[in-house]
Simulated assay, not measured.
Amino acid sequence: MDEKTKEDRIQYLRSKRDDPTANYRSYLINTYNYILEDSIKDNKGWSKASSRLMLNYVYKDEPDHMGLEMIDQFKKDLRELGYIKLIKIDNTWRTFIVKELDF
Results as ranks from 00 to 15, higher is better:
Lys41Asp: 08
Lys44Ile: 01
Glu62Pro: 01
Asn56Glu: 10
Ala49Ile: 01
Glu3Val: 13
Asn23Gly: 15
Asn30Asp: 09
Leu53Arg: 08
Asp38Asn: 10
Phe96Met: 06
Ser50Arg: 06
Ser47Val: 00
Asp38Glu: 14
Phe96Leu: 08
Met54Asp: 03
Phe96Arg: 05
Asp72Ile: 05
Thr95Ile: 08
Leu13Met: 13
Met1Ile: 10
Leu55Thr: 09
Thr21Ser: 15
Trp46Pro: 03
Tyr34Pro: 00
Ser26Leu: 14
Ile87Trp: 04
Tyr27Trp: 14
Ser26Trp: 09
Asp72Trp: 04
Leu81Asp: 03
Lys4Asp: 09
Ile71Thr: 04
Arg9Trp: 05
Lys48Phe: 05
Lys75Val: 02
Leu78Ser: 02
Gly45Ala: 01
Phe96Asp: 06
Asp18Arg: 12
Asn33Tyr: 10
Tyr32Gln: 04
Trp46Glu: 00
Thr31Cys: 12
Gly82Asp: 05
Tyr12Met: 12
Val98Cys: 09
Lys85Ile: 05
Thr5Cys: 11
Arg17Pro: 00
Lys44Ala: 00
Arg17Met: 11
Asp38Gly: 02
Gly82Asn: 04
Met66Lys: 13
Tyr34Thr: 01
Tyr34Met: 04
Ala49Phe: 02
Lys6Gln: 11
Ser47Ala: 04
Thr95Trp: 02
Leu101Lys: 06
Leu53Cys: 00
Glu62Trp: 08
Asp72Glu: 13
Tyr27Cys: 07
Ser39Phe: 01
Ser39Gly: 08
Leu28Lys: 02
Phe96Thr: 08
Asp2Glu: 12
Glu62Leu: 12
Asp72Gln: 12
Asn23Ser: 14
Phe103Gly: 07
Glu7Ile: 13
Tyr12Glu: 14
Leu101Gly: 03
Arg52Lys: 12
Lys99Trp: 02
Leu13Ile: 11
Asn56Phe: 09
Tyr59Asn: 09
Ile71Pro: 03
Leu36Phe: 11
Ser47Gly: 00
Glu69His: 13
Ser15Gly: 14
Asp72Leu: 11
Lys4Gly: 00
Leu78Trp: 03
Ile10Asp: 03
His65Gly: 09
Asn33Arg: 11
Trp93Leu: 10
Val58Ile: 07
Leu55Val: 06
Lys99Thr: 05
Ile89Met: 14
Met1Cys: 08
Phe96Ile: 08
Lys88Thr: 15
Lys4Ala: 10
Lys75Glu: 03
Ser15His: 10
Lys85Val: 08
Asp8Pro: 01
Asn43Ser: 07
Trp46Ile: 00
Asp19Ile: 13
Tyr24Lys: 15
Arg25Ile: 09
Arg9Thr: 04
Thr92Val: 11
Ser15Asn: 15
Leu101Glu: 05
Ile87Glu: 15
Met70Lys: 15
Tyr83Thr: 02
Phe103Trp: 14
Leu13Pro: 06
Val58Cys: 04
Asn43Ala: 07
Glu62Val: 13
Asn30Arg: 13
Ser26Gln: 14
Lys6Pro: 05
Asp61Gln: 12
Trp93Met: 10
Glu3Phe: 13
Gln73Gly: 07
Thr31Gln: 04
Ser15Trp: 06
Glu7Trp: 01
Leu28Gln: 01
Phe103Asp: 09
Asp18Pro: 04
Glu37Asp: 06
Lys75Phe: 04
Asn30Leu: 01
Asp77Leu: 05
Tyr57Ile: 06
Ala22Gly: 10
Asp90Tyr: 08
Tyr24Ile: 12
Tyr57Val: 08
His65Leu: 10
